[in-house]
Design a protein around this nucleic acid. Structure first.
Length: 833
RNA sequence: GCGAGGGUGGCGGAACUGGUAGACGCACAGGACUUAAAAUCCUGCGGUGGAAACACCGUGCGGGUUCGAUUCCCGCCCUUCGCACCA
């Protein structure tokens, strides 16, 4: 027998799959489709264990579904635009395109070495003009629908690098690359009106309940952050102006003893004029502007403010209350102004104590009285209104409703809904991305590039600036272009699009990846979409998944797509951990997939990663665990090869009408039990770890069985069929996890058709049944004895038999049996006193 | 603070609908094979007591429901993740 030479076996089958395009699929309306998708990777260099995990899970499921007869779409591609490419290019004096395409080549080879069942003919790279021209098309379609607009917003700006920084690129208030302090800057940029879809995105969360992890839905719901409340207008004292606030607690209105405006609020500056507070207010506004968003909004950040000198009138009490400005009030939530109710809001209370502002209790808890002068904890839950005139005695939501109705009737305010979700800023002052297809014309203004002029190609001959500045800004050949409307000289927009746009619809593109006439072909997309199972990291729980859902809704509104949601089911896999921490270069705990593959083979690597933990949980890497999986595959190799000669020429299932000798009967039962366990573990629970454990148990059983088999002299043809069925089933079950070894053994068993084209084994419930069942006997709930009886034994007979057991007699001696509980074929519990 | 998970042997994990807690793997120990080692095969392996049969204890802690609870309920503790000066 040849030893298990995984190197040549894996090379042989990878070559076979490639040459035969084994996993190429076509739309076929006569067959049921299954669209399985793993999140496509960013081509960062080489694959890491997180990728191995993600794609091994997907591949196991893809192969399982193929063998179940589904028409499986299982594509892969590259999320290929983005900053790392640009940064690497600057560092290595190279070009982002070169760096990106080289990485793609490397990683594609690594994927092939893992034996993943992709339809390589559908491979896409988002940095290819054939892809990003459709990003531009999306932008323009959204633009037509009024879902795109341009506005000024505050961004983190690094002057030396001449670039906008994302929040996560600001480290301790400085630029992550040059360490210079980050400034806040107003900048023009393009936005997608995702807020228009807030409610529908929220409704979708309900629809997805049960098929998406609760955690992800909760995160998205929080992110959208819908809250109900009221907007209330406060008159400014001795002025015609009013200040509008948003509150979720209109029932506390009587308790509002001061107001606070965001420093950026348009009225802040003006309110202080002529009050003697001008210089203090101006200085404060300047100070807050200098702080970056992160430190300003982080918890524990000191609450600071100044009095503007102005007063507003509490619309309920008619009393004047001071108007302050403070750093903790944000311009981009609500109205940028709040009414402060220190007795019933902790933050307001802290602020009031710090600056000696009055506190007034207007809500009382059921038990006990609040003391305004001494309280240090705001009472923020529902209670009974007090000190609120005609509203006294109302409770909680009732009070909120009555006050709101009153405000509306008096024209002082109205009920409103507020969202935490902001519009999506899609502009990037970067080079390596999709050019925004917009032209600025002095005469015609902002002009979208006509659809038939797409793509606006990203010039590849650009030289990247030392400092990371986008070369598009200085590239006149790119910028100068005639206006599509009037033909006069005009300028192209030099911003590029956020790469999240690329990933918001790539799964649609896979359904017709080479279509030149459309982003996606209608009949293909209606056949394949939605994705039946999406698999990826939890780190994309909010942004990527929310943006994709948003795109899908817009496509739906455009009549391009039928399905309600893009991803029917979502699986978020856990991280790969070593020594208790996420693998990272800085921790020095990285395990290189290449090394594992060259030492043990892809099958072992995949098997281990599926076996060590269920997919949703974090997985602790263990070199010894890998050894164990390698040993298991060798055991499979040995037992199948050793018994091969015994079953030559036997084919077909064992006959059901022939009585089997006991070890054979048991083998057949074990075979079918294993098929059932593996099938159900994958299908119902995606628990590959227990599925593999079942295979291991079966192999252990085969080793024991072999002892008996080898001692036999006269074995019938039917006996041999039972053994063949056992070995074949094992190989097919394993093909989902370790496809190379399975394919090799399958062909050794005499099959010319590969496993992926073969039906998944079916179990026969009849053969799983055993005539004898083990009954656990409990006395007062404690296990005292076990007996074997025939299946479905008569209950009364069983009760009598149990009490007749000497072991049981000892335990019930001198006691009276009060009750006997029988769980058929499982357990008898004697309740004795 | 809010939201969602999780806590089971030396370790990773299993127990699916309340019915034998610890499947499977790792580590460890013993044995077989070998001149020897590795590899491989076999056996054992939650704790305490016992030569053993066996008994008692045991799924973060404290209660409860039940004939029976890792599983359900109530109250705590610890922990991971996400959000958070959101008005």
């Amino acid at each position: 027998m040849q030893s298990y030479d995984f190197k040549s076996i894996e090379a042989k089958w990878q070559d076979y799959w490639e040459r035969n395009k084994s996993f190429k699929v076509e739309k076929d309306s006569s067959r049921e489709k299954y669209y399985l998708l793993e999140m496509f990777p960013y081509p960062s260099g080489k694959i890491h264990m997180g990728h191995v995990r993600n794609y091994s899970i997907g591949d196991a499921l893809a192969r399982f579904k193929m063998m179940q007869g589904f028409n499986v779409l299982h594509p892969i591609g590259w999320d290929a635009f983005g900053m790392p490419a640009e940064n690497a290019a600057i560092k290595n004096q190279s070009h982002p395109a070169k760096w990106t395409y080289e990485n793609i080549d490397t990683m594609r080879e690594q994927f092939k070495k893992l034996g993943l069942s992709y339809d390589w003919d559908r491979e896409i790279a988002t940095c290819h003009p054939g892809y990003y021209r459709w990003n531009q098309w999306c932008f323009l379609k959204f633009y037509e629908r009024g879902l795109v607009y341009r506005k000024n917003s505050t961004v983190n700006w690094c002057e030396p690098c001449q670039t906008v920084l994302a929040n996560e690129q600001v480290v301790d208030g400085g630029c992550w690359r040059c360490d210079e302090p980050v400034q806040q800057k107003q900048q023009q940029g393009w936005f997608f009106k995702i807020t228009d879809y807030a409610d529908r995105l929220l409704e979708g969360c309900d629809f997805l309940k049960g098929s998406w992890p609760d955690q992800v839905l909760a995160m998205q719901t929080n992110w959208i952050g819908k809250s109900f409340g009221a907007e209330v207008d406060f008159k400014v004292k001795d002025s015609e102006e009013t200040i509008r606030v948003f509150t979720t607690r209109p029932d506390t209105l009587f308790g509002s003893t001061f107001m606070v405006l965001a420093p950026e609020h348009p009225m802040t500056h003006g309110l202080s004029r002529g009050t003697g507070r001008e210089s203090a207010v101006d200085a404060f506004i300047q100070k807050v502007k200098g702080e970056d968003k992160i430190s300003r909004t982080s918890e524990g950040g000191e609450k600071e403010g100044v009095f503007t000198g102005a007063y507003a009138i509490n619309p309920m009490t008619g009393q004047p209350i001071p108007v302050w400005t403070a750093n903790f009030v944000l311009m981009d939530y609500g109205t940028g102004a709040i009414m402060s109710v220190p007795a019933h809001d902790q933050r307001d209370l802290d602020f009031a104590r710090k600056y000696q502002l009055p506190v007034k209790v207007v809500i009382q808890p059921k038990d006990g009285d609040l003391d305004e002068t001494s309280m240090t904890e705001a009472f923020t839950t529902d209670g009974t209104m007090t000190g609120s005139g005609q509203f006294d005695g109302l409770f909680g939501a009732d009070g909120r409703r009555k006050i709101s109705e009153y405000l509306e009737a008096q024209g002082l305010g109205k009920r409103t809904v507020n969202y935490r979700l902001r519009d999506w800023g899609v502009s990037r002052q970067r080079y390596w991305g999709t050019p925004v297809p917009i032209i600025f014309c002095d005469a015609c203004g902002t002009v979208p590039v006509p659809l038939d002029q797409l793509p606006v190609e990203l010039p590849l001959d650009a030289q990247l600036g030392e400092r990371g500045q986008s070369p598009l800004k200085t590239l006149n050949e790119f910028i100068e272009t005639p206006c599509p409307k009037c033909g006069e000289a005009a300028q192209r927009e030099t911003d590029t699009l956020d790469t999240f746009i690329c990933s918001s619809w790539y799964f649609d593109r896979y359904t017709s990846p080479r279509d030149e006439a459309a982003a996606f072909n209608k009949s293909s997309i209606d056949y394949w979409m939605p994705v039946d199972q999406y698999i990826g990291g939890i780190e994309h729980a909010i942004l990527h998944l929310l943006y994709s859902r948003f795109f899908h809704l817009v496509f739906r509104d455009l009549g391009l797509i039928e399905s309600k949601e893009p991803f029917q089911c979502l699986l978020t896999q856990g991280m790969v951990i070593k020594d208790g921490a996420k693998m990272s270069k800085s921790k020095g705990n990285v395990v290189d997939p290449d090394e594992i593959i060259s030492r043990y083979g892809a099958d072992t690597a995949r098997l281990f990663i599926l076996f060590a933990a269920p997919p949703v949980k974090d997985l602790e890497w263990s070199d010894q665990g890998v050894e164990g999986c390698f040993r298991f595959l060798k055991r499979v190799w040995v037992i199948v090869n050793e018994l091969l000669d015994e079953i030559n020429g036997m084919s077909g299932a064992s006959a059901s009408d022939i009585e089997l000798k006991e070890p054979l009967n048991n083998l057949r039962r074990q075979t079918h039990v294993t098929i059932k366990r593996v099938t159900e573990d994958i299908q119902n629970r995606m628990q590959f770890n227990t599925a593999i454990a079942a295979c291991m148990e079966f192999v252990n059983h085969l080793y024991t069985f072999r002892e008996w088999w080898n001692a036999q002299k006269d074995l019938s043809e039917n006996d041999r069929r039972v053994l063949r069925e056992a070995l074949e089933s094992l190989v097919l079950l394993l093909s989902a996890f370790g496809p190379h070894i399975a394919e090799e053994l399958w062909s050794a068993l005499g099959h010319s058709q590969t496993t992926d084209k073969t039906s998944w084994p079916r179990f026969n419930e009849e053969w799983i049944r055993s005539d004898e069942v083990l009954i656990v006997i409990q006395v007062n709930g404690k296990v005292r004895h076990k007996i074997t009886v025939s299946e479905n034994a008569d209950e009364d007979v069983l009760k009598a038999k149990v009490q007749d057991e000497p072991k049981v007699k000892e335990w019930i001696e001198g006691k009276q049996i009060k009750k006997i509980i029988v769980v058929p074929n499982k357990l008898v519990n004697l309740v004795a006193v």
